[in-house]
Amino acid sequence: MTISRTDIEKVAVLARIRVDEEQVSALEKDLGNILDLVDQLSAADTDSVAPMAHPLDAVQRLRADEVTENNEREAFQAIAPATENGLYLVPRVIE
C-alpha cells in the first residue's frame, strides 16, 4: 500500500502537525513501509468475528453524582503557557 503526498498532507492537517516539504518524501517512504506491514491484516478471514475494542469483557462502573474536586486553578495555571484573569490564552482563530 502506498500513501500519496496528498494523503500525507491531508492527514497532517487533521493531526495538526506541520509537515515541511522536505519531510514529505521521508514520510512517504516510512508510512508506506508501515502500511505495507499493516496490510498483512487483509489476509485474515474475519467474516464472523466481532471487533474487540477492549481486552476484558467488563462493564462500565458509574460514579455517584457528588462533587469531589476543589478549585485548583492556581496550581493548574502555574504550569500554563499563557493565562490572564483566570483564562487560558491562545492565539485567535483566523478564518
Binding site: A12, I17, F76, P81, Y88, P91, I94
Partner: peptide, 19 residues
C-alpha cells in the same frame, strides 16, 4: 500548547500554534 507543556514561539494564529 494551550494549557501546559510546550508552546511554539510567537504563533501567528491558532492553527499555527497547533501545527
Amino acid at each position: 500548547g494551550a494549557r501546559y507543556g510546550y508552546r511554539c514561539e510567537d504563533p501567528k494564529d491558532l492553527l499555527d500554534m497547533y501545527t
